Simulated scan of single mutants.
Amino acid sequence: MPAQDIRHTDHRILVSAPAETLYRLVADVGGWPHLFTPTVHAERVDGDDRRERIRIWAFANGEVRTWTSLRELDPAARRVEFRQEVSQAPVASMTGNWTMNPAADGRTEVVLGHSFAAVGDSAPDLAWIDRAVDRNSRSELACLQEIAERHPGLDELLLSFEDTVLVRGPRAEAYEFIRRCELWPERLPHVARLELTEPADGIQQMVMDTRAPDGTTHTTESVRVCLPDRIVYKQTVLPPVMAAHTGAWTFEETAEGVAATSHHTVVLRAEAVPALLGPDATLEQARAAVRAALGANSRTTLEHARALVESGEGPKTGPGSGPGR
């Protein structure tokens, strides 16, 4: 049997930041969605800070793909090795590593290496994977450089918060209200238009026009992953003041009812704050304004979900829909 055609690539970048800072950013896979442009959602499935299994949803050549990887983390060597455990066609296998090497001039050289093969050794599929790896690697290294070089001020730019509404009704119906976002223009006062496509089971891509209190509208685009216990999302077209916006809708059953919660994580663009709030505006004011605007829309959505579910006229689940989808 002929040997499988395995392609090897390395991508490199010099970053004006300590190797330890870069290692921590790469090691924290849960932070990848608001760090790396291609990553929609990433999470640790099991393991610890030395060996872990992770699952990732990310863009590859414009398509949202998902895979499961095993990672070995070595903080002393500032190195992370990975191997895809469950790949998605056309990828047959994928391994690689991140290394952070201090350079002589005080900067750090970050090397992202990949070794991969295509299903059936298909030349067109191997070329497709090569393009995806090249595009994503260049994007991820550029994002890593941008975040790391402004890392001392990152805490001021990063904003995370949540809002919860208690729904006294079936959890599945609260979930369905959020999943059936194509109905939001009929159900929510702040949604003027929403276009939904579902390129794969559990993957939603949406274009939404949101109406502000002053009557103006702005357009955002998002990708959502509908998991059995929650719906996670990433905005891919953002308002100018945001560099990244990710979030989740979760539904926890309690003794009093279902705690439906909207979670947000935002990275602000400091340079865009004056245009939003005026030339003398501070980052703290921008954080408060973004928190108020996003929180108001989330609470409105959750309150409308609560009212519909508790009225007994909430969305019904059926085969192929709902939390078990």
Rank of each mutant, 00 (worst) to 15 (best):
R138P: 03
A58H: 14
E140A: 11
R24S: 15
Q84V: 09
E140Y: 01
S122K: 07
L196I: 11
S262N: 10
H151R: 09
A172M: 08
E43F: 07
P240R: 08
E253F: 01
W32I: 01
G113Q: 11
R79L: 13
D130G: 14
P189V: 06
L166H: 06
V258F: 00
V223F: 08
S115P: 03
R71H: 07
R180T: 06
V258T: 12
L14F: 08
P323Y: 01
D201Q: 13
T197F: 04
R269C: 10
R138G: 12
T37A: 15
E313G: 07
L227I: 03
A305R: 02
P199T: 00
F82Y: 08
E81A: 14
G215R: 04
F59L: 15
R50E: 01
G324V: 08
C226F: 09
E63P: 04
R180A: 15
P239T: 14
T216Y: 08
T317I: 15
G312M: 05
L268R: 02
S321T: 15
V40G: 00
P189H: 12
A118R: 04
H264Q: 15
G153C: 10
T39I: 12
Q4H: 09
R53S: 12
R135E: 13
R230Q: 14
A89G: 11
G320L: 04
T265K: 02
P2W: 03
T66F: 07
A286F: 06
L194E: 11
L283I: 13
A200E: 10
A104H: 03
A281K: 06
P240C: 03
L196V: 15
V80A: 11
R171F: 00
V119N: 03
E173Y: 01
D214R: 09
L25H: 05
E81R: 15
T68K: 05
P189E: 11
R78Q: 14
L302N: 02
H245G: 04
R53P: 08
D105H: 02
L35I: 15
S311Q: 04
N136H: 04
A275E: 13
A259R: 09
T261S: 10
G47Q: 00
D214T: 03
Q285N: 00
R65Q: 07
G324S: 06
Y175V: 13
A104Y: 01
E43H: 07
D209A: 14
I56E: 06
R269H: 12
G314N: 01
L194T: 02
F177A: 10
S160E: 12
A244D: 04
L194S: 02
A172S: 14
